[in-house]
């Protein structure tokens, strides 16, 4: 069923494709071959019970943690090293073609548009135009809200040490443009009034909005949101959701959320995760009637 759905998708229109991702923490299997394909300019949700590996999948996609090799769990260390060693010798001297192995299928891969993300550092992944937020609201407590936004733009001239002394004009010009952009984003998120406050004075909801604003400063094409509505009241949550919907014009949005009303009202497509695998995907209507999902998510006797 999963393959048939993937075939329907137009390859030019795919924003993110993560295939067969494995992740083990010691002996704990967090992800066991999870695969997601996200189309452009859609709002896609990822739901699933606690501990089903949603955040881990986000971490692997955004290169915050390396994915595991499927063999890692199966074999003892020494056997594994021996196998890798022998593989290497075979490849080098035994005339074994590299193409015989298809590592992407076995190991899994993460592609963002045309880019293979495997092996990138977290900041390099962020530079490709894929931004993420975190479950806990992180900010820079001693910086003002405006500064919080101004740190975010990528490839600033003023961030190179030499340029501080030799490209002052250019830095000033860039700062001006960034300031205007930051004010615009504050306006868009309706938090202009906290412009002059410092990070540690903000409330939980304001911090969530600030995290969103920081991410918008970089003009991302794909936004990974990890529970944007956790821990804030429903009124503000809906406001944040409306803002997120407006972003759909320019970017793809992929979010983890526990609020089912929001997920089923706003999403174009829903992925359901359980025990480290994607067990179902489809439009909200399809998911709502999916027996497997209800069993996994809410328990068998729902």
């Amino acid at each position: 069923m999963l393959e048939s759905l993937e075939l329907e998708k137009d390859p030019d229109n795919i924003s993110l494709s993560a295939q067969n991702i494995h992740k083990y923490f010691g002996g704990v299997k967090a992800l066991e071959g999870a695969s997601v394909v996200v189309s452009k300019n859609k709002l896609i949700s990822l739901i699933g019970p606690n501990g089903s590996g949603k955040t881990t999948l986000f971490n692997v996609i955004s290169c915050w943690s390396p994915k595991s090799h499927p063999d890692d769990l199966l074999e003892e260390d020494e056997v594994k090293i021996q196998k890798r060693f022998l593989d290497g010798i075979n490849r080098k001297f035994g005339g074994k073609e590299e193409s015989e192995e298809t590592p992407s299928e076995e190991v899994g891969s993460v592609d963002f548009e045309d880019l293979r993300l495997d092996g990138l550092n977290a900041h390099e992944a962020a530079l490709t135009g894929m931004m993420r937020t975190f479950q806990t609201t992180r900010n820079w407590p001693k910086l003002t809200v405006l500064e919080n936004l101004l740190v975010a733009p990528q490839h600033q001239t003023g961030e190179s040490f030499i340029n501080i002394f030799f490209k002052r004009k250019q830095i000033e010009e860039e700062e001006r443009i960034n300031t205007l952009k930051a004010l615009e984003i504050l306006d868009f998120l309706e938090i202009t009034h906290i412009r002059d406050q410092i990070g540690e004075e903000l409330s939980g909801g304001q911090l969530k909005l600030l995290a969103l604003g920081r991410l918008l400063m970089t003009a991302p094409r794909l936004i990974l949101l990890d529970e944007p509505m956790a821990g804030i009241n429903p009124t503000l949550g809906n406001k944040i959701m409306d803002k997120i919907l407006e972003l759909k014009v320019d970017s793809t949005i992929f979010l983890i959320e526990h609020n089912m009303d929001v997920v089923f009202n706003y999403s174009d497509e829903i992925f359901v995760m359980a025990r480290g695998k994607i067990i179902a995907q489809g439009t909200p209507n399809e998911i709502e009637s999916n027996k497997e999902v209800i069993e996994a998510y809410l328990g068998a006797d729902y």
Binding site: S62, N121, A122, H123, E124, A126, L127, M131, R132, T133, F134, R138, N139, W140, P141, K142, L143, E147, L150, V151, A152, Q154, Q156, T157, G158, E159, S160, F161, I164, I171, E175, G199, R214, L215, M217, T218
Partner: peptide
């Protein structure tokens, strides 16, 4: 400078700085 501003951001939370695409 903006450089120093990023330094202060790193001092306060380096994870967020990495997440916006800067090599801490």
């Amino acid at each position: 400078s903006p450089y120093g501003r990023t330094l202060r951001a790193i001092r306060e939370d380096d994870i967020t700085v990495t997440s916006v695409g800067k090599d801490v």
